[in-house]
């Protein structure tokens, strides 16, 4: 079966300087990949190449076997969606108006949303537990609620592949678990493939099927959480000493920080 996402020999970055150097990655259909690595290792940049915000200098990104540069931007956005780390600014749209924007790739210019589109948006609100906010203004919501609305907007695009850039970074642990559970449920129930950048290694190890540990623009190690989250790998990449304990979390690696100063 063709992988849903295939990154081959990808090099490129901003203004001539390469941030990514020969990145190779594969995500099988229905996969759940976590991108981890230190700040500046190229995780977010990698997502930008996958969504055509940036164009690679070398290499290709394939979606279902097709080079994404050969797919129209609108067509690509009917298949993939992106949830960013930054919460949206701008004018005060209502939650419903915002989520309906997720239908833009499916509509022609000046075409009104049909009943079906509204139904899809409502379902996305329901899935993310934000249906009760539908007529509220987006800037009246808390950070956690807003992040869930942004996920609902991405789901309204009806993607087969969802990219997320640290979607839980603004959230408390309760909301973090809520969002991760939601993504896991979507991944299992509807076969939605997920690629997400994460900072919290424990959260990444608990939820992701596979992890790609990035270091300095390269993929340092790719594999299951057990394979990637070893104290050796973490020490090599993060330059930090940690303990890894698999017993506490039911076989999933659990990382314990070791402070440098006592």
């Amino acid at each position: 079966m063709t992988p849903v996402l295939e990154i081959e020999g990808l090099s490129g970055g901003y203004c001539g300087a390469d941030v990514l150097k020969d990145v190779n990655l594969k995500v099988e259909a229905g996969g759940f990949l976590g991108l981890i690595g230190p700040n500046g290792s190229g995780k977010t940049t990698l997502l930008r190449f996958c969504t055509r915000v940036l164009a690679p200098r070398k290499g290709v990104v394939r979606f279902h076997g097709r080079d994404i540069r050969g797919i129209g931007l609108k067509e690509l956005c009917r298949e993939t969606a992106f949830v960013s780390r930054d919460l949206p600014g701008g004018f005060s749209f209502t939650v419903m108006e915002m989520v309906l924007m997720g239908r833009i790739p499916h509509l022609a210019r000046l075409q009104r949303e049909s009943r079906r589109d509204i139904g899809i948006a409502e379902k996305a609100l329901e899935l993310t537990g934000t249906l009760e906010f539908r007529d509220k203004y987006i800037d009246e919501l808390s950070a956690g609620e807003r992040q869930r609305v942004m996920i609902a907007m991405a789901l309204a695009q009806e993607p087969r592949l969802l990219f997320l850039d640290e979607p839980t970074s603004h959230l408390d642990i309760g909301h973090q678990v809520q969002i991760m559970d939601l993504l896991k449920r979507l991944n299992r129930a509807s076969g939605l493939s997920v690629v997400m950048v994460m900072h919290d290694l424990n959260l990444a190890g608990t939820y992701c099927e596979r992890l790609a540990l990035m270091d300095n623009g390269r993929v340092f190690r790719e594999g299951t959480p057990q394979e990637v989250l070893t104290f050796r790998n973490i020490e090599a990449v993060y330059k930090t000493i940690v303990l890894v304990d698999a017993a506490a979390a039911g076989g999933k690696p659990h990382i314990i920080l070791v402070p440098g100063e006592k």
């Binding site: 931007l73 956005c77 960013s84 930054d86 924007m101 833009i104 790739p105 210019r109």
Partner: peptide, 23 residues
């Protein structure tokens, strides 16, 4: 007016609008 939907998307952010398929 023809581009009003694009303006909606652009008003929430440039990258955000690209993720909605807008050049």
């Amino acid at each position: 007016y023809f581009f009003s939907q694009d303006l909606n998307a652009l008003s929430i952010g440039e990258e955000e609008s690209m993720h909605l398929g807008i050049n």
